[in-house]
């Protein structure tokens, strides 16, 4: 310490919640902390950044150029955090989300890293919504000057309203936090190489005689207008996701009559239907 941390992820992944919990806990434990959320308020679905500083000395300015710790929650965060990396930076990332292709671009900047399969672990054992808390566990394992109990206290306070409605949230979050710390403490660079997941190919072309139906994951935002507009209910949400991470529609080509309603209603131009006569 002093520690400069940058967190980056998709809006809605819980980046800002994690940053807030760390900042509040540090303040409580007698440290100085500063937390600056940075996301384009006018642009939804963008990368959400959090500048976080913890120090025993007063903090004069909330932003910084190079970080001591960089936490990447999602694939699209990589270009946003690239400039904050230096040779001493500890890079924490979710290796069950981030693709090899993205990691390749920053490989030569990284000396020190911690790979955590946060989403995969959360999905399997807890709930996919607490993946951010698993990463929080990884971060606080490296903030040794602050007592673990304090983090637990702030975490429960942050979700107090939700816990009243759904008591199981308490155990989910505490479980995720402990799992995160455990991964971080057992982490060994020799065992876990600096890698992520391979990009999966998404099927985009569907056709039957005379009708061809195409979708474009690079444009689809998952609004669902096409599904509502389909007269034969041939469309439904699939497991594949578009560039925002939202589910994409898929066609049951046998039911498709090639009317083109889905293509006309799509605000993003993510569907193309062609009917030859």
């Amino acid at each position: 310490m002093p520690t400069k941390i940058i967190l980056a992820g998709e809006g809605g992944q819980g980046v800002q919640t994690v940053a807030k919990i760390i900042a509040v806990t540090a303040q409580r434990s007698g440290k100085n902390s500063s937390y600056l959320p940075a996301f384009g308020v006018e642009q939804r679905g963008g990368v959400s950044l959090a500048y976080l500083q913890i120090s025993s000395k007063p903090i004069t300015y909330p932003r910084f150029a190079k970080a001591d710790m960089v936490v990447a929650f999602c694939d699209r965060a990589i270009p946003a955090i690239k400039d904050f990396l230096s040779k001493d930076t500890l890079f924490i990332y979710d290796n069950s989300v981030i693709k090899n292709k993205s990691l390749e671009k920053i490989k030569n900047l990284i000396n020190n890293y911690l790979a955590m399969p946060a989403l995969a672990l959360a999905k399997e054992k807890l709930s996919s919504k607490v993946a951010n808390v698993v990463l929080l566990g990884g971060i606080i394992a490296h903030l040794k000057e602050i007592d673990y109990q304090e983090f637990e206290k702030t975490l429960l306070e942050e979700f107090a309203d939700k816990i009243i409605k759904k008591p199981e949230i308490k155990d989910l979050n505490l479980g995720a936090l402990k799992a995160g710390i455990e991964i971080a403490e057992k982490f060994n660079k020799e065992e876990t190489p600096f890698s992520g997941i391979e990009a999966t190919e998404i099927k985009t072309n569907f056709s039957k005689e005379k009708i061809s139906w195409q979708r474009f994951p690079e444009y689809c935002k998952g609004c669902g207008l096409c599904i509502v507009r389909c007269p034969t209910k041939a469309l439904q949400f699939s497991r594949d996701s578009g560039f925002l991470g939202n589910p994409m529609p898929i066609v049951t080509i046998e039911k498709c009559i090639g009317c083109g309603n889905c293509m006309q209603i799509c605000p993003d131009g993510a569907i193309k239907v062609e009917k030859s006569t």
Binding site: G45, Y219, K221, C223, L244, M263, C266, D268, G269
Partner: peptide
């Protein structure tokens, strides 16, 4: 693509919300 020809393809996906 299914985009109109006059659309600037480099700025797509555009910045409007889903739907």
């Amino acid at each position: 693509t299914a985009l109109p020809k006059s659309w600037n393809k480099e700025s797509k996906p555009h910045k409007f919300c889903p739907g």
